[in-house]
Amino acid sequence: MKKISVIDYGMSNLHSVLKSFQKVIDKKYSLSIAKTIKDLEDASIIILPGQGAANSCMDRLNSKFPSLDKFIINRPFFGICLGFQILFNESSEDGGVKCFSIIDGTVTDFKNTTNRKLKIPHMGWNIVNQNHSHPIWKNISNKSFFYFVHSYYAQATKLSDELSTTDYGINFTSSVIKDNIFACQYHPEKSSSNGLQLLSNFITYSEGI
């Protein structure tokens, strides 16, 4: 039995993340919630969902999950929303938050970078432009719609890390891939059939890592 561990640091609603993975996994996987770093030791796949502010997220992760970054770079990892943003070097949220620096790039407020009258948060269905082909996109057409909810956006420095972009006043990084790590700004657990397909593709992809 392979264990999929969903990290719970008290700031996100795990319900739909758990249920959506439940929907796509087969019998050889079990799903569990990780509340401390110890719970991750025997995990085959680590999922980090998240919503809320980057600084309290990093604070909680650092206290309950010390050295989480070592786990992230070592086994199949799936980050969603805030679990995607904290992989970058830093976020400008609350005057600046140091993040994991696993993916080169920064996270910035939509407000500071555009003069256009855009509604913030960026909430709703938007187009995900696939930058390069990858098993994670299997049976998902390029320019499919996924569901987003966020006020800060990421920009990856290296093109090779940037798996997709999305346009909301600015063209930002909407998902990244780096070896065993996949993470996305959008919510696959809320993106209907394309979202479930993506989760399923990640599970398949992780078996080859």
Binding site: L118, H122, M123, G124, W125, N126, I127, F148, D167, Y168
Partner: peptide, 8 residues
Amino acid sequence: MSVAKRII
């Protein structure tokens, strides 16, 4: 570019 108009 903006988000899609939603039907609920």
